[in-house]
Structure formats: structure tokens, C-alpha cells
Nucleic acid binder design. Structure first.
Lengths: 156, 156
DNA sequence: TGTTCACTGGGCAATGTGTTCAGCCGCAAG
DNA sequence: CTTGCGGCTGAACACATTGCCCAGTGAACA
């Protein structure tokens, strides 16, 4: 489960040039193809690499507005609320958290006006007591993993 | 930029079975290989599909703790804070938002104790006035895009 | 010393890729 | 009505890559 330097280089290389093949990777990294293949297999069965799904940009899909909503849930209604939110396509992810709110979810919408519709749909459910929404203006650091991978690789 | 039904099916298929090739996709979708290839090229140059980078699980890397931090920034220090946060590997993403806080960032850590270290590093910077952290307990809806793609595909 | 493990370098058949082509169709503009 | 355009089809081609196998090597470890 620990990641060594070679694993780290494989992941980083893959993150930078996803189209690259195993053969080309082995050339760049200066190791045998079989090694890269074995490492990749191990990383995937380890769960370190979950997959290679396409990274879709909601904005390009017509949903340029992103927001985070903090939800407060009525005691014991957690499961129902989770099930409800899972049915809303505009809910891209949902977490249960400690702290002030009970849940945090990421939403997208077609416009600020449309966001109202989405929020209404999200909070228009019995178990939700209160919701606080923060609209995303800028995204200075888009979801990234490379720095963490590099640190993890050095660490061991 | 609009997504039609075939585009939608391509993306969904790709999301479900990332290892699949263009040829196999064309077989499953019942269209010519060239069509799938052309659609894929278009989706990528459109920016709808940003890439096929590996989806890395921080937990498997030794960072099982996730948290969201809401930061309040001192007027005019935004750029400095952004630059600071970008240097912290444990900051996986950063957004500037409307609402109570000024920024929202996603953090990971090796443990709850380690989270304290990460938070100290994050907020140990002059421009940050206040920080509120919510630790993630569960992730009932992991980051997903398929439902949105399906909706976008039907819409047009 | 002997065993295990990962890596190497090679070889093989099978498959997929990138690319190009002509032909067909629906549609919109002239 | 006819022309031109864009998208799709089905096929072809050379080429590279994949998945798989193997024997040999070196390092770590009991």
C-alpha cells in the first residue's frame, strides 16, 4: 500500500500525459515494460488508482455555475436525505461532516437563476432543516493530486 | 458545445469502462468507428472531456482523512493566500466563494492528529483571519458526473 | 546456503490505432 | 429544384501497442 518513488513517477507521468501507453512509459522511466505493467496492476488492485474515467467539465456541458451547500439535517433523517440527494443530477458529490452543518454537497447549475431551482429541489425535502449556500467564483486550485503523490512517494 | 444523445452515451460508456477502446465502443454503440473517433476528438477539443487522468484515492496513499476548510481572508490578501495554499500538497482544491467565508478548500491528512498539522500550515499565514473546518465522516455520493451527462444529453 | 521476489530483456500472436478513401444521406442555401 | 456541405458508413492499410510468456539476474532475507 505504500508508494515508492517509481510508483510516484508512474502516477505523475500518467496524470500529465494520460494518453501515454505502457510501452512509452517504460521508455521514459528507463525501466522494463513488464515492470511498469506490474506496477500499474498493483496500483489498481491496491485501489491507489481507482480508474481512468474521463474528466468531464460541467461548464462545457452547460453548467457553468458551481456552489457548495451546507445542510442541516433533522435527527434520524440522514439516510432519507442521502437517498434524496443521490437522485438529483446536479448534486455532484455529497459528504457528511462534523461541525456546524451535517452535510456538505457540491452543486452545479446552468445559471445563477437556475441555481435557485436546484437549491429548491435539494432543500425541498422534509429532513432538511436549514441550508447555507456558497457560490463559487473562482477556482484557483482545481482538484489536483500530483503534489500529494509526490510527497507520498518521497515519504517512503 | 451542446451534447447530443450519442455524445452522452459515449461519455457514460467511457465513464463506466474506461479501459474500453474506440473500436469496442463503436461496436457497443452500433455506429462506425470513425464516428466515435470524430465525436471523441470533438468532445476533447470542446473541453467537455478534459482528459483521462488517473483517479487517485488519497486514502490508499495514506491520507484517509478529508476535511473542508472555510477561510476568511484579510482584504487585499487574496492573491497571496492563493499562492500560499497552492504550495501545500494536502490542499487538493481551492475555491473562492460568496457568502460567509471567502474561500473553501479541500484538505487531506494522514490522521486526525495530522490534520491539525495541515490546518496549522494552511492557516499559519498572515492573510488568513479565521478558519472553520469540517471533517468528512462519510462520502455517500462520491464525485460523479454520469447523471448530469445523461440529463444534458436528453436536454438537447 | 537456499528461497523468494522484483526486475530485465526478449519474443510471440492478436488486437487496436491513426489515417485515408469513396459513397450515401439529410438539410439548408441559393 | 439543385447544389454544396457536414456527418455517418464501411472498408482498407501500415504500424504500434498490448497481453502474455519465458529464462536469467541480483538483492534481501531466513
Amino acid at each position: 500500500m505504500a508508494i515508492d518513488r517509481l510508483d510516484g513517477r508512474i502516477i505523475v507521468l500518467l496524470a500529465r500525459e494520460p494518453r501515454i501507453g505502457v510501452l512509452e512509459m517504460s521508455r521514459r522511466l528507463g525501466v522494463a515494460r513488464g515492470t511498469v505493467q506490474a506496477r500499474l496492476d498493483r496500483l489498481q488492485s491496491n485501489g491507489v488508482i481507482r480508474g481512468f474515467g474521463p474528466q468531464v467539465d460541467p461548464a462545457a456541458l452547460g453548467y457553468p455555475v458551481t456552489a457548495f451547500a451546507t445542510l442541516e439535517i433533522r435527527q434520524g433523517q440522514g439516510a432519507d436525505v442521502r437517498a434524496h440527494l443521490a437522485t438529483v443530477p446536479e448534486v455532484l458529490e455529497l459528504h457528511t461532516t462534523t461541525g456546524r452543518g451535517d452535510m456538505l454537497c457540491r452543486l452545479v447549475a446552468r445559471s445563477n437563476a437556475d441555481l435557485q431551482r436546484v437549491i429548491d429541489r435539494v432543500v425541498g425535502f422534509d429532513g432538511i432543516v436549514r441550508a447555507a449556500t456558497a457560490i463559487v467564483m473562482e477556482n484557483p486550485v482545481p482538484l489536483r493530486i500530483i503534489p500529494l503523490v509526490e510527497q507520498a512517494a518521497l515519504q517512503e
